[in-house]
Design a protein around this nucleic acid. Structure first.
Lengths: 211, 211
DNA sequence: TAGATTGTTAATCGATTAACAATC
DNA sequence: TAGATTGTTAATCGATTAACAATC
């Protein structure tokens, strides 16, 4: 990682992995940038540029070994050295993530969940114990955690972000829909703003129909 | 809409709305591109360029009226003429969306949900009736729907996308994690690939720590 | 009118695409 | 060796930033 790799490149990497997994599953062993581009709707140039940010995965005159390329990208993303994660807010959405989301496949390990509702505290969801939010600070102090998944009400978002950051959490997966104000800190925030996504869909849908 | 507006601009619009709502709530009535930029971490230039894609919301020497600008952007996004939506797959995630997501605020109206599980079919979630998936095709034929929200297992994703597209659905909000293969159709697909999001977070987190 | 701030044109920067020499 | 395809440099394209005249 000599220089800064653009966010566009990084955000394409998961898609490469997904597509390569599909090829692997279909028994394909090698692929050229040209073919891969055709399948994924990208130019061969772009693919070669993207991949060369991370090193020479390919072989001239041959192409890329599917398995090897997949593993190379996975390594670049850091899958393999899992990050410790906790879910904060075990309501509907938190529940859905705890139950369905494959943390392990994304290089993370879910360790605990927190909530305030007596209905939820004490329960176990998919093997994860739901603790009371009042224990959060003590927990983070004793068990260093890398990522906090925020799935709590908007009104609590900023306070929770502040608390976890103070307790050493380095990344926030933010489902609250609020733009967190963590000025000054070097915490990495990944926003999943579902409203933004729906609004964008709506825009293109209407733009399309207008044609 | 004389020319094609870049996706970058479109994806910033929801954020403008969110921030302007905050200002409104705080009683702020006017804002200049300079101030707004400082608050949102954008350049004043970019803000003026963005806004001018949609028309002269501002007034020279004064700035932008917060309320008016907010409404202008909302209009550009088409909030106000709601799109009809159905949720397909009423499991954990579908449930969470039906219960928590504010469709109305995003210019959509949720009309129905579909599932195959006998535990879920017949139930009502947040006022939305869960119907059996076998009724989906007939339903869409009788009740034209704009958007299908796909929250079903990956194995069903492609078939569901094909069916709804065939029945006139113009937009898909895709939570399945699969890259849908809707070759040829002009359906708009908005992907919410949570794994991609988590992987990206992991990348930046580790890149940060490495420094 | 003078000051502020927009709308818009021009300059810069970065990302994508094209081209091609290196090499398997 | 000849053919294919990479890694990498150069050209193009688009997006962001800067500048400034228009105007409230």
């Amino acid at each position: 990682m000599k220089y800064r790799i653009s966010a566009n490149v990084i955000r394409r990497l998961p898609r490469y992995i997904r597509h390569l997994d599909l090829l692997s599953a279909a028994g394909v062993e090698k692929v050229s940038s040209g073919e891969l581009g055709k399948q994924m709707g990208l130019t061969a140039s772009q693919i070669r540029q993207d991949l060369n940010c991370f090193g020479g995965f390919g072989q001239q005159g041959y192409g890329y070994n599917v398995r090897q390329l997949r593993d190379g990208i996975a390594a670049a993303l850091g899958i393999g050295t899992p990050l410790k994660a906790v879910v904060i807010g075990a309501g509907n959405l938190g529940n859905a993530l705890i139950t369905n989301f494959h943390f392990a496949e994304c290089g993370a390990g879910l360790e605990a969940a927190f909530d305030v509702s007596p209905d939820r505290v004490g329960r176990e969801i998919n093997g994860i114990k739901v603790r009371h939010a009042s224990e959060l600070e003590a927990y983070l102090t004793e068990n260093p955690v890398d990522v906090a998944v925020l799935t709590l009400p908007q009104s609590e978002a900023d306070a929770a972000a502040e608390l976890v950051t103070r307790c050493g959490v380095k990344g926030i997966w933010n489902f609250t829909g609020v733009d967190l104000s963590l000025s000054g800190s070097d915490t990495v925030v990944e926003n999943v703003h579902l409203s933004d996504s729906m609004l964008t869909l709506g825009y293109y849908l209407r733009a399309d129909s207008a044609r």
